[in-house]
Design a protein around this nucleic acid. Structure first.
Lengths: 388, 388
DNA sequence: GGATTAGCTCAATTCATTTGAATTATCAAT
DNA sequence: ATTGATAATTCAAATGAATTGAGCTAATCC
């Protein structure tokens, strides 16, 4: 068996590529920044950064934002990302629909769409994706020649495993190389991921975790997912299935974590008392009405969330845990505010800079935009050389 | 707040440094390998690799191992790591003793020592470490000018947390910068880590996980630790305390995982029935005698191990989980052979290349040698530029 | 025994960075 | 208001390390 090298060798051109990315990353992180400051941060000379910035401006990736005087000396010309300098497509394939979002370089959605599906077999899905993508490009003509790639979110786990997500699985996707298929269909580099990982990346690019290097993201999707970001990079696991936290057994009456902590769980609980909450809005309404059954569920969910936190904190020691996904913001708020912090945890430390539990982005499109964020992150943060 | 860049910029010299490391890494992974093959693996030209190999041979890091004919063409000159080309010091500080090991570039221990401690306060420990290090250098004079660095293992968790390891904590270490202190004392670059992470690195450098990029290592130390290696790199967590798995609550009569699965646990269990097993050898003896009390513990431990596996596999999705540390090999063997694999897991996949649970290195020095392996790994595998 | 294949080296070239000097714009002190 | 210090930036030359292309060597294949 051939042992694959961790990292390829470096040469002048690969250095330039890496430095371009690093410069973009600095600009993204700072919002607006001058050449000399970037040079200091990257341990490069101003001359080098100057050359790279000239190149990036030429390519339309950067915009001049005027000079900013901060003390003595020549005020530095500030540069910012040109939002129209690059675009990333985000595709989320669900059993019954495709969600799609086109993000610009600053992570803003410039086009979104939802396409219902009759069948979710590969050919059918791919055809719809091609059509949606074409529609986005027509809507945003600037994106035509500036596509960085596409992120695709599909329900995990990938490959054959002991977990069968009854009913929610896609048919006919087990045996195919989805990344390859999408890449051929839309003629872009594709990154495949599960919903939680993608959502975590969205938080890192534009959301609550922009300056957080290591964090965990508990994501309410169909079940309960976990996105792990360690030192700025996704922890995907050897087979891309890291973060299937919902299936972990917990002490208590419910068998698995997601039996107590998921959208399905709350819907089942409400159903058992004769109430229905078809979607996020319905749940939000019940919450604002102070529905006692919903609050009973929230109590149990909080306990489960405490267990999840103990596990995540002790195994992964993140700076913070974010809570987000397809839940009403009010419910996420409530959980963040009312979940008792576990004592027995390496994260139970005095004087911590970040709260241990924070609210992330809420809503239906979180994972879709996260899919695109996977690509943006690669363009702005990647230390791994692109496959060229 | 200044956002620290993920990666510094690159230039010709940093490229060379990186390429040198990459070449060393290839040689280490292959055992013996020719220039052209390295060049292919790293996407460099043979000329470049040739230059680097000449440099590394000059520096005494590589040895020629004769030509190997594999087919047509000029047989390639094989190169291997010169074991005497570099050394790493491993220090393990325990409450009552210091363990120390000097490893050569191939990961073999060329000197080991155990120094009992009266007190484990910083000054005292540092003085002993300096003495032991000097003794090693006298024993292995070649190492004098070829020290790559020192790895130090101390009982975690680091910093103030909600976990207090009653009695096993070191006194006076909470407020000091241990890495800094060790580095000043022995005048070497120092990497600080907990036992499980270090042991995991040892498995990757010389042990059962040499060609495994992502794995988890369950380590029997004082309690139960977890070392995580993801894509060849340790996952240390934001504050260096990742892997404190022992404190996770599990379903069942025991509160925490390490109440059922640790050396302390088996000793307590045996004590409760009037038996004593002071050390590893005593445990091994009981095992070979078929002691029914020990086997009762093993059954419970296996159940707990199953829980641990479910958590690790579903959160981290590793290629395999290794079991090692300060336990008799026979007991590790037994656990590996008799633990039922959890069904509900992303790792429960047909046709997997690695077994889901494997036996790692057993014995008292595992973590100590792992400490040194942290340094070797940096020299052979690191993608992160050394602080120069 | 000649053709083919593969490993390796020499010398020249190329790429991207660094170095050092010069220029410009601002602040601060006289 | 003038002068000096400071900082950002650019220009041109030098440097470091990789690539390119030609040539040599030692195996196997036919």
């Amino acid at each position: 068996m051939r042992v694959q090298p961790l990292h390829k060798g470096s040469n002048a051109e690969r250095s330039r590529h890496r430095n371009r990315q690093a410069v973009l990353g600095q600009v993204h992180a700072a919002g607006a920044i001058g050449r000399a400051e970037i040079a200091r941060a990257l341990s490069l000379t101003t001359q080098t950064v100057s050359n790279i910035i000239a190149e990036l401006s030429q390519d339309g990736m950067l915009l001049e934002k005027g000079r900013r005087s901060v003390g003595r000396g020549l005020p530095a010309m500030q540069y910012a990302l040109n939002p129209e300098g690059g675009y990333a497509l985000g595709i989320e394939v669900r059993p019954d629909a495709i969600f799609s979002a086109l993000l610009n370089l600053q992570g803003q959605a410039v086009a979104t769409e939802r396409v219902p599906l009759n069948t979710n077999e590969p050919d059918h899905v791919l055809a719809h994706v091609a059509v949606v993508y074409a529609r986005h490009l027509k809507q945003v003509p600037t994106a035509q020649n500036r596509m960085l790639g596409a992120g695709v979110v599909m329900p995990g786990p990938f490959g054959k495993t002991g977990i069968a997500v009854a009913g929610s699985d896609l048919t006919g996707w087990q045996e195919v190389d989805a990344e390859q298929l999408f890449s051929e269909t839309i003629n872009l580099p594709v990154m495949l991921s599960n919903d939680a990982n993608a959502a975590a990346m969205a938080e890192r690019i534009t959301g609550a975790a922009q300056d957080v290097m290591s964090f965990a993201y508990l994501y309410f999707g169909a079940g309960l997912g976990l996105g792990l970001v360690h030192e700025g990079h996704l922890v995907r696991g050897a087979f891309g299935n890291a973060g299937e936290i919902g299936h972990i057994p917990i002490p208590g009456k419910d068998h698995k974590l997601e039996d107590a902590l998921s959208r399905l769980s709350v819907q089942r609980h409400l159903h058992s008392v004769g109430k229905e909450a078809r979607d996020i809005d319905a749940l939000e309404l019940l919450y604002h009405q102070g529905d006692p059954d919903l609050f009973r569920w929230l109590d149990a969910a909080g306990t489960a969330l405490g267990h999840a936190m103990t596990i995540i904190e002790n195994i992964f020691d993140p700076q913070t845990i974010l809570l987000g996904g397809a839940m009403p913001a009010a419910i996420l708020d409530h959980l963040v505010a009312h979940t008792p912090m576990p004592d027995i945890s390496v994260s139970n430390r005095p004087g911590s800079h970040h709260p241990r539990l924070m609210q992330g982005t809420s809503g239906r499109m979180t994972a879709t935009m996260g899919a695109a964020a996977l690509i943006l992150n690669r363009a702005l943060n990647s230390s791994i050389s692109h496959s060229l």
